[in-house]
Design a protein around this nucleic acid. Structure first.
Lengths: 338, 338
DNA sequence: CTGAAAGCGCTTACAG
DNA sequence: CTGAAAGCGCTTACAG
């Protein structure tokens, strides 16, 4: 048996006023509508019994839950978790709560998460969409549910997004490796066709072209990329390309797999091989040698994401509410490209 | 303007039946109550318009939201995230959804998260409580809200929990370091008085006593332990104790700080210093040398957590529903204690 | 300044 | 086999 939950009706009865009045007091709408005496009496009683409103009922009635869902590829990833932290604060300041979850870049899982929260009437979504998520995003837009994409986007959908200029950022990164005197610089990536991956690939290709260097790309099947397979794939690529003197990885988890391989093969960094990662990671500072990385501007990303979502939450005219932002990454040069 | 949401009443009108009947069809309670013809008609229409029930309303009416909250110290930590993954699956199989969040071991933040979800009437909680969370846990119990603690617990509260035998696990770990011939083995920990930390300290002390070795304990102030301060504190401890030949860390993030210090001081592992971590981490497999660690049995922990919570969700008699489980950790010996 | 009443979208005991 | 009606706990337009 649950301890009977207290409702507004109970408070009204106990204090001898109407539920209307109680509701006004609770929601601070009492100002010119309720006498100070009544306000004090009700507030005192509420504190006394520790009343907490049922937010399910409130949400049902008002149509607002004040919840924003932050749905990212992997909340364990430093990149996503640090943005989540910042977003949480911003959300709070604006009267919203942030709930986060990981899609693992799995379309089916993402769909389920979306349903989970849509059915519970959350107010808005911030999403790193997996491949094949176009329909879901379109539906959100049709239903006028606030949504902002980030990290990647869909070219043919008119929706707010915050991404970085992957192409230019990668171009800059690969150039720095060539700048160290490398000639045969490989690009290790996944076979995902997501916008951010395609941008990074273009950046690499542009740098290679500019330096008249060979295009050495290894695309690792996207599924199972975080498992052993990445290590094996990189190993065989390395065996097939003995002349490599530089490796650039398109994501931090690929870099980790690559470091494992280089270690297994006792290849010294940066002596025999320069290494650079797209996306930073805690490990890269600790590793011997420390690993250079392209770091994304998490503060600005979080700023833009919240700004963009708030515009929609505050119900600006649809077209006006679409904000598409592109930011630049910054290169952190460490020992691995020294 | 939102596209008008469809409700059960709309479906009832459109199909010419009552809301009662629609509700029965939706909830598969139609079996002997509704004719097959009506069932088919309603189901067809529902599919056609893509109706999704408002779970806020359902929750308000039934008093069940089918949501379990998994509130852990840090969801970015491999230990917690791998348990979260397992729990999610188990929850799903039992008709529940799992929502996770990070307390950062911050009492105030934990309180806010608890309120956030309690006010929204979630069905149960799994919590790694921060210090000073006794009252909140007691309140949950009084309110008959299902709750299971894990990783740590409060001795004087009768509530379900799942923890590991920190004392024995650490004893075993420190013994293995002595087994490698070390004599001056330090224990680096936080000054937190949480049960799991106290257990780990006792395990170290027991091992030291048994080997007639000196007790060399460094307690790092808990606040800011994940920041720079840990590195500085460990450095000064190292300076003050030049004779050390082994270091055991009470958590994986302390180990990382320690590795940074050892690297800065060019102390070779395991030649000059054996290193062992309580709690494993991805980094420890990748580091040079690989780092030995005490690994917690995540599968069994997840099993027990769900079993324990389900018992309460299914409303077993209160006293019967309390399950307190203690599991053993397993030692993974790698190069750092080689 | 205050309250009676309708309604958000569901479920379910009850009557037929 | 089917439906009218009450009720979960809120908010708010309206009347006084």
């Amino acid at each position: 048996m649950k301890k009977k939950k207290i409702s507004i009706a109970d408070i009204a009865k106990a204090t001898g006023v109407s539920t209307t009045t109680v509701s006004f007091v609770i929601n601070k709408k009492a100002k010119n509508n309720v006498s100070t005496a009544v306000i004090e009496k009700v507030e005192k009683y509420i504190k006394e019994i520790g009343y907490k409103p049922n937010l399910l009922a409130k949400g049902l009635r008002t149509g607002k839950t004040n919840i924003i869902v932050f749905m990212v590829e992997d909340i364990s990833d430093r990149f996503f978790s640090s943005i989540a932290r910042l977003m949480e604060e911003k959300a709070y300041k604006n009267g919203y709560k942030l709930i986060f979850c990981s899609t693992e870049n799995d379309t089916e899982r993402s769909r389920e998460l979306l349903t989970l929260f849509k059915d519970r009437q959350v107010d808005g979504f911030i999403i790193t969409p997996p491949v094949g998520f176009e329909e879901e995003v379109k539906t959100l837009i049709e239903e006028k549910i606030p949504v902002v994409l980030f990290d990647r986007y869909f070219e043919d959908i008119e929706v707010s997004h915050v991404v970085i200029d992957n192409m230019e950022s990668m171009f800059k990164s690969v150039n720095s490796v060539f700048g160290k005197g490398c000639r045969n610089v490989a690009f290790i990536t996944t076979d995902s066709k997501q916008s951010q991956m395609m941008g990074r690939l273009s950046g690499y290709e542009k740098a290679v072209r500019q330096h008249g260097a060979p295009r050495l790309v290894k695309e690792i099947p996207f599924f199972g990329v975080k498992e052993k397979s990445a290590v094996e794939e990189i190993q065989s690529f390395l065996d097939a390309n003995p002349g490599l003197d530089g490796m650039v990885f398109s994501t931090n988890y690929l870099t980790k797999a690559g470091l494992k391989v280089l270690k297994n093969n006792k290849i010294s960094i940066p002596g025999d091989m320069a290494v650079l990662s797209f996306d930073d990671d805690e490990l890269f500072e600790l590793y011997t040698p420390t690993i250079s990385a392209l770091s994304q501007p998490v503060e600005s990303i979080a700023d833009k994401l919240m700004e963009s979502l708030l515009k929609q939450l505050n119900g600006k005219a649809e077209k006006d509410a679409i904000i598409q932002t592109e930011l630049m990454g910054s290169l952190i040069e460490r020992e691995s490209t020294g």
